[in-house]
Computed example of a mutant assay.
Amino acid sequence: MVERDSSNHCTWRAHDLEFVFEEAGARDKFLELLGRYKDRYGIEIQSYCLMGTHPHVTCTCRQAQVQFSRFWQVVNGLFARWYNKVRNRRGQVVMERMRSPRIQEGGAHQLTVMRYGDLNPVRAGLVRSPKDWKWSSYRHYAFGEPNALITDAPEYLALGRTAPERRKAYQALFALPLSESLRTRRVDLVTFPFVGDATWVTHQLEVAGLSAPD
């Protein structure tokens, strides 16, 4: 569910769970497309983590939903065209309709989604620490690594008065033991239409005329 100025967790999986992002240059191409079109469609990219079969991107839409939808149509469409050309193939690249649960403002909900995304490579056994995964925004937030694609997330900016304070606080989120809920795929952060407090989620479902997910 997308509204003007809403933040959303966006993800999709490749057709047949193909490892599309392991193609040489694929991750660079996807990030380049995000950067090329985000301003045109009023999108701020707050975080990302690119796995082999799917991306995780949190972003804020500063315009209407139609612009949000158009942005992802352009980015995913051009990425699919590039991938098919490189692989000398035809057909579907994105397997399913993109999921984009809306994130409640305030609290730590955006940080929870960002942490979940950054820990994907750790859960998959690809690296021991999120800092060792090149294809995420973790090192920007944790160590101040320059990243022109990123607009700092509001909840991150609230972690401290200075940049060193914020970086230290963000690192501390990952120093906590990996809870059981973060060891496995969190469907509530990926497939549910809303991410937030139970009361807020219930209200949003009622307003949207939706029933609670199973």
Rank of each mutant, 00 (worst) to 15 (best):
R4S: 00
S6P: 00
S7A: 12
C10K: 06
T11G: 07
T11K: 11
W12H: 06
H15P: 05
D16S: 03
F19D: 14
E22A: 07
E23V: 14
R27D: 07
L31Q: 10
L33D: 07
D39T: 09
D39R: 13
Y41M: 10
Y41D: 09
I45S: 01
I45W: 00
Y48A: 09
T58R: 05
C61R: 08
F68D: 02
S69F: 10
S69D: 14
R70D: 11
R70L: 04
W72R: 00
W72G: 00
W72I: 06
N76V: 02
F79Y: 15
R81P: 10
R87D: 07
R89Q: 06
M95C: 15
M95L: 13
S100I: 08
P101R: 07
Q104K: 09
G107I: 01
A108N: 13
L111G: 04
M114Y: 00
M114H: 02
L119K: 10
R123N: 06
R123H: 01
G125P: 03
K131R: 10
W135P: 07
S137R: 00
H140F: 11
F143R: 11
G144W: 05
P146D: 11
P154T: 06
E155H: 11
Y156A: 02
G160W: 02
A163F: 03
P164Q: 00
R167Y: 06
Y170R: 02
A172Q: 10
F174H: 15
A175R: 14
A175W: 02
S179T: 13
E180N: 09
S181L: 05
T184Y: 09
T184N: 09
L189T: 04
T191P: 00
F192A: 04
G196E: 00
H203F: 07
E206C: 08
S211N: 09
P213I: 05
